[in-house]
Design a binder for these strands. Structure first.
Length: 858
DNA sequence: GCAAGGTC
């Protein structure tokens, strides 16, 4: 019997497909990958009985990157990136997808590809095939092995139909995606590296650690700057309006009329009309028109609409909205949140969805009413064939969902869903037209007839605050006031996130799944800030960049660029051009654009010059340079660094860290003055040499390390001198005595990612690390000199040497702490204290201190 | 350290 391996794009889809094809009778087991399961069932494949295994990947299995040596920013000229060799690597190594697929493919004869039916999905087909084909069973298998299922929705009908008409994967579409990946990588990285190095090497207050460029993020920024420019160049114009108030009868309040000419920009003409109107005492009701109007119920919800509403009405940004939607989806509260489709599948079970929601506190009674009167047929939307619209999958309470914002999003999704099944809202629009002399005026108002869907979306309801007076045609109303008022046109406001999303969607910048990332990106890079009303105000940096592109090569920030490139690449998908030719052509064009940009970067720099402060004038003197002995300046704006204006060198410093001088002590290797870094009063602190931090002196010292990772054998600040034991919570770290922590002595893990801190004794003058290791656990002993009056030792002794973990006196005095609470805490039990022992992991503990500690780095 | 595209 043959085994058929079927692979979907995500775990949820594998589950749905297996459920449909097995008629709800499959067995599910965990896969080698933590994210994916395998659903198995017996069935028929092309007339023969077969064993089916349905599983999935998690999106792309592979991604593209430059070969190792090209990732060195110092040594590689960015222009090389247009031809540097690239390779494919695992997109998410933690998930172990390739190994998992390999294992499942080994006993399979046939593979059926159920990836999403778009270009990216087609590309993933070939990623899967690359892994699966070499290991699949080949014996007595001369027939076809690879099949592609084509489906446009996840319904019984569609899935069965796809299974009965399997096709072939489309290599051209896959190659089109590969071309896009390659181009995005080369162009994005080349520009980003060049800009970052160029501008960071000149200015001290850009306040962004990365001056990135990208074919999606840059046009996104472009939209925000375009609006900024409109605001800046806006010239207010003066106009004149007639303000008229009339009264229906003596016992009624006055009401305002709107002039049919709205406003005039010529004062003389306006005065002319004013005089004509002023001649009259009465306004005569010329006509009263009422018209029944309809406010349509919304279409089924897709991702961009959800993002728009969340931003504009719930005040939740796109990134957070997507995270919330993800969480609601994985917990089973809503359907798949990334979809462009606004049309419900034909067989959508509205009735059972409604039944589920009938128990909701906020909407239960509305749902019951919908069920009783019969729900309306939803409006026709567009079916892109990706996923059904976003709908609630089960009823939930605020307590169940937990997070307040997630709850608000869920509540909105429920209400939107119910609204799509509700009647349209009907209201009466009334317009009363008045004549004053020959001039026409009017007043309008709306009154609801049938609230329809606005009952469940109250924020959409008809505004009936403006009640109209009760008048008949021909009625003469007393004019209480006529005035000519001078007003000025106002500038537009900054772009809202919601408007930006609309613009991105319109120009094809990003996809439903990536729009939120691009918007988030331009914020992270300090190109825009979110101001009140979730409007995006570009920063000086963002403005200078876009204006600079405009001066050098306007294409670079133009929203039309992305679609123009995609149009070219699409020729590959359509089979009209060779992948190699198109890619080569596109790369060449962008390389030329890049070279032109580099040659003309001064035009952009002229803009930067007037706004930003040169490095030489930035920052405050902090510590001495080891080369020239002059003070270097500490630049605190991102990226934090030291700048030596004499040598014109910069030295990066750790981010989000307080940096101070430390006793004017110097590094014995390079004479740079040492700094003490700390991450707040609860955090770790350690010494750092600015030069070694950027240029590690020893092979086993990583870039970005402090003295607590330095293997200098003689320096009194090095790991070699102050290291005590392997970290008790992480794999690679070493607990090092923190010489700056006195008098609240601490040991801290020297791994940047680990936050373990061991607080020692408060009442010691001096602590040093002994050459001798503990016999029990092999940690180095501490030589402690306590204060005379506060010593915990008997007989007023002040000196004691022993192992911090095993010595009975010491071990009672220490405490384990996590520098940050975000890091998962491992229990530190009495038994756990001895964990230092396991540092040899069966190996003999070497005698020499240096090599002992070095051994833990292997 | 870089892009954009999938998805957990």
């Amino acid at each position: 019997m043959k085994t058929v391996l079927m692979v979907a794009e995500k775990p949820s889809l594998a589950a749905s497909i297996a459920k449909i094809l097995s008629r709800n009778s499959c067995n599910t087991r965990k896969g080698l990958s933590s994210a994916c399961s395998v659903h198995e069932y017996p069935g028929d494949f092309q007339g023969q009985s077969a064993h089916f295994k349905v599983t999935s990947v998690c999106g792309h299995v592979m991604c593209i990157d430059f070969e190792g040596k090209y990732n060195n920013w110092e040594k590689v000229d960015p222009s090389e990136l247009f031809h540097a060799p690239t390779f494919k690597k695992e997109a998410n190594p933690k998930l172990n997808i390739p190994k998992f697929l390999e294992k499942e493919a080994k006993d399979s004869d046939i593979v059926v590809l159920w990836l999403d039916c778009d270009k990216e999905g087609e590309n993933i087909c070939f990623e899967v095939l690359d892994i699966v084909m070499p290991v699949m069973k080949r014996q007595n298998n001369k027939g076809r092995v690879v099949y592609r299922a084509q489906f446009s929705s996840i319904t019984d009908k569609d899935i069965h139909a796809a299974m009965n008409s399997l096709g072939e994967p489309n290599e051209n579409e896959s190659l089109c995606v590969e071309a896009r990946q390659e181009l995005d990588l080369r162009v994005g990285c080349a520009f980003t590296r060049f800009q970052t190095k160029y501008f960071q090497g000149k200015y001290g207050n850009l306040d962004s650690s990365l001056i990135s460029y990208g074919p999606c993020q840059t046009p996104t920024l472009g939209f925000c700057v375009e609006r900024h420019d409109k605001i800046q160049s806006f010239k207010p114009e003066t106009y004149w309006q007639l303000d008229v108030e009339v009264k229906g009868s003596n016992d009624e309040p006055t009401f305002n009329l709107n002039w049919s000419r709205v406003r005039l920009f010529d004062q003389q003409v306006a005065i002319h009309y004013l005089n004509k109107v002023k001649d009259n005492k009465l306004a005569i009701v010329q006509s009263i028109k009422t018209k029944e109007k309809v406010k349509q119920r919304p279409q089924a919800l897709n991702t961009v609409e959800m993002l728009r509403v969340a931003s504009s009405s719930l005040n939740i940004g796109p990134q957070q909205t997507m995270q919330a939607a993800e969480s609601l989806y994985t917990r089973g509260y809503i359907s798949y949140p990334r979809t462009e489709t606004t049309h419900y599948p034909e067989n959508f079970e509205f009735r059972s969805s409604l039944n589920q929601l009938a128990s909701g506190n906020l909407w239960g009674s509305y749902v019951k009413k919908l069920i009783d009167i019969g729900y309306s047929k939803p409006r026709k939307g567009t079916d892109v064939g990706d996923h059904p619209p976003i709908t609630p999958m089960r009823n939930a309470t605020e307590q169940e969902i937990g997070s307040f914002d997630n709850w608000r999003l869920y509540e909105y999704i429920v209400r939107h869903f119910l609204a799509t099944l509700s009647p349209d809202c009907k209201y009466l629009h009334k317009e009363i037209v008045f004549l004053i002399g020959e001039e026409k005026f009017s007043c309008t108002g709306n009154s609801p007839l049938e609230p329809g869907f606005t009952e469940i979306m109250p924020w959409m309801s008809i505004d009936d605050s403006q009640t109209l007076p009760n008048l008949q045609e021909g009625k003469k109303c007393a004019i209480e006031k006529v005035a000519l008022v001078e007003r000025k046109t106002g500038p537009p406001d900054y772009l809202t996130e919601s408007e930006l999303i609309t613009l991105m969607e319109k120009h094809g910048i990003g996809t439903d799944a990536s729009i939120s990332t691009h918007i988030n990106n331009i914020g992270q890079r300090n190109y825009v800030t979110v101001v009140s009303g979730r409007r995006l105000q570009p920063t000086n940096l963002g403005i200078m960049l876009v204006h600079g592109y405009k001066k050098i090569d306007a294409d670079l920030a133009l929203p039309t660029m992305r679609s123009a490139v995609e149009k070219q690449l699409n020729l590959i998908a359509l089979g009209k051009a060779e992948h190699k030719d198109v890619t080569k052509h596109a790369v060449t064009i962008f390389q030329q654009k890049f070279l032109f940009f580099v040659q003309n970067v001064l035009s952009m720099d002229r803009l930067f010059e007037v706004t930003f402060t040169p490095l030489s004038q930035s920052g405050k003197p902090l510590s001495r340079c080891g080369k020239c002995r002059r003070y270097m300046k500490h630049i605190t704006a991102a990226p934090p660094r030291l700048y030596c204006s004499t040598c014109d060198d910069t030295y990066d410093l750790p981010a989000k860290t307080n940096v101070k001088m430390y006793k004017e002590l110097k590094c014995p290797l390079d004479d740079f003055e040492l700094l003490v870094c700390s991450t707040g009063s609860q955090g770790k602190s350690y010494l750092l040499c600015p030069y070694c931090y950027n240029h590690p002196p020893f092979r086993d010292m990583r870039k970005g390390s402090g003295c607590n990772s330095c293997t200098h054998p003689g320096c009194i600040h090095s790991r070699s001198t102050l290291g005590v034991s392997p970290c008790i919570s992480c794999e690679n770290g070493i607990l090092v005595l923190d010489p700056t922590s006195a008098p609240k002595w601490k040991l801290a893990c020297n791994d940047n990612r680990c936050s373990t801190v061991v607080t020692l004794f408060q009442d010691a003058h001096r602590i040093s690390v002994s050459e001798d290791a503990c016999e029990k656990c092999a940690a180095y002993e501490l030589i402690v000199d306590f204060h005379k009056e506060k010593t915990p030792l008997e007989k007023n002794e002040t000196k004691h040497t022993g192992c911090v973990f095993c010595d009975p006196i010491f071990s009672g005095l220490i405490k384990l702490k996590q520098a940050r609470l975000t890091v998962k805490r491992k229990p530190f039990s009495t038994r756990g204290r001895g964990r230092g022992r396991s540092r040899g992991r069966g190996k003999r503990v070497p005698k020499d201190k240096m090599s002992q500690l070095a051994a833990y780095f292997v």
